[in-house]
Nucleic acid binder design. Sequence first.
DNA 1: GACTAAACGGAGCAGCGCTCCATATGGTTA
DNA 2: TAACCATATGGAGCGCTGCTCCGTTTAGTC
Lengths: 203, 203
Amino acid sequence: MSLEGNTGDERPRGRRADARRNQQTVLAAAAEVFVTHGVDAPIRRIAARAGVGMATIYRHYPTRADLVTAVYHHQIEACAEAGPDLLASSGSPFEALRGWVDLFVDFLVTKHGLADALQSDSDRFAALHTHFLDRLMPVCARLLDAAVDAGEIRPGVQPYELMRGIGNLCIGRDGDSRYDPRRLVELLLQGLRRPQAPAAECR
Amino acid sequence: MSLEGNTGDERPRGRRADARRNQQTVLAAAAEVFVTHGVDAPIRRIAARAGVGMATIYRHYPTRADLVTAVYHHQIEACAEAGPDLLASSGSPFEALRGWVDLFVDFLVTKHGLADALQSDSDRFAALHTHFLDRLMPVCARLLDAAVDAGEIRPGVQPYELMRGIGNLCIGRDGDSRYDPRRLVELLLQGLRRPQAPAAECR
DNA sequence: GACTAAACGGAGCAGCGCTCCATATGGTTA
DNA sequence: TAACCATATGGAGCGCTGCTCCGTTTAGTC
């Protein structure tokens, strides 16, 4: 069952540089393709996107579950690191929060697909889920706190609450053009905003 | 979306006899193949089993969801009708109950597969589920009552309780050779038995 | 028996997962 | 620097799938 369930940047010695590089490329390509075409997307397509052969993908990730898991870890990490970065670079904490939520929504496609990809392996899935909460809840909390401190959103919203809410909004199965999770998430975010003090642009 | 979501025996006039006959044959073959190979079994295989061409299946059931739904209805009906029959023909009510549960377990494969086959159409699924309960709970209740009246099993077990218990036992994903739902269901049934009065064969 | 609309079967096409092996390349050693 | 080879690569190829098209067969009717 391929023990290399790591983030993809281990084994600093012994592996050739191109191998390591390709592994990262594949990871990034898979992440993109999963978002746009779901976790059932053909391996061929991911290979094409990454500009590598299919065998390369199969070598690094023998099963689809391995690939999905790797992308999952990769995206959790990216999401976690993006939090502070966005806070530093964005115009306001709320902007940062919105940017972060955008990444988070992308990530959820993978997370929801994970359950299917892992089929019955519910122990493994549970472990991945707790890792998810441990890593991302603090990041979300910091973003919320910052926005609250800046007076942009109402206080009292819990990170778990928000993350779970967004997660549930994104469950509405793909392919249904009548349902756009992103739009609803944006509404949710607007709902967080502090009731505008004056009433110039409120009308 | 193919409105022919019926059991397959409607339209007594206007359709040719062979068409009707084939539809039934396909239904039976699909039911068997679903049990042995899951609801994702290749259409080819079902066609071979039924002794018809693939086009015949696609003509009667344009999508896989249509086929699964039809089998689902068909099996509910078979299960429902089998209840009284078994009660009349078996040596004892408990024997009848066991025979019925056996059919029921077969049926559950289809039911669980239905959720996947229907993908997002949760309204349709909910409707099918209530039909399932409405039709089968009374049958199960009669079998339980009869076995209780005959003093074979302990009283007080509710039909919903039993059906749901069996249903849950059968969730453990297929392909895992370590888990045999049928064995556990048999254990459950044995657990229903009234504590033997004397103690000759109890030890 | 003849006629025709309905029904049929399966070859054929496109797309998929996965593997095999001839080729290319990075790291290492002389 | 050059030569060497274990490591890594790419994509043709195989077997399987879903689904369709169309020449053939057949049930029902006159």
